[in-house]
Amino acid sequence: MPLSLAPIAPPLSLHYLSREGGPHPAALGAVQFGGTPQPDCALQIATPLLGQATEALELWHTDQPVRSGTLGLLHYAMSDDLLFGAICIPDTDSDVGQYPGGGYDPLRPSLLQQASEQVYLAVFAALESLGYLHLLRVWNYFSDINTDTWGMERYLQFNIGRQDAFRKMARPFLVDAPAACALGTHGGGLNVYFLAAKVPPLALENPRQVSAYFYPDQYGPRTPSFSRAALATLPGQRWLFISGTASIIGHQTQHAGDVRAQTEETLRNIAVLLTQANRAEDSQDWTLAAVQYKVYVRHVADFGVVRAVLDAQLPSAAVRIYVQADVCRDDLLVEIEATGCLPVPSLPEKTP
Rank of each mutant, 00 (worst) to 15 (best):
P65G: 01
H61L: 10
Q32T: 01
L43H: 04
H75S: 13
Q38P: 00
I89H: 06
T70Q: 14
F84Q: 04
A30M: 14
L83M: 12
T62D: 13
A86S: 11
D80V: 05
P39S: 12
I45K: 00
F84D: 04
G29C: 07
F84W: 15
T62G: 04
L43V: 03
C41I: 06
Q44Y: 14
T70D: 14
A86T: 03
R67H: 13
T54G: 06
Q44D: 14
L73N: 04
T36S: 09
C88W: 05
S79A: 07
H61F: 14
Y76R: 00
E58W: 12
A42Y: 11
T62L: 13
P65D: 14
V31Q: 04
F33M: 03
D81A: 06
F33A: 00
A42N: 03
D63F: 14
L74P: 01
A86N: 05
I45A: 02
S79E: 13
A46C: 06
A27K: 01
P39Q: 11
T62K: 04
A30Y: 12
Q64M: 11
D80H: 13
P25L: 14
P65V: 09
L50A: 02
E55W: 10
A53C: 02
P39V: 11
L57M: 11
A26N: 04
A53S: 11
T47Y: 10
L28K: 00
L49W: 13
P25T: 05
R67K: 06
A26P: 00
A56S: 08
E58V: 05
M78A: 08
T62I: 11
L71E: 15
D40M: 09
A42C: 10
C41W: 10
T70K: 04
F84Y: 15
G85V: 07
L57K: 00
I87N: 02
G69A: 11
L49I: 07
H75L: 09
Q38F: 12
Q38I: 05
V31A: 05
A42L: 12
V66A: 07
M78Q: 07
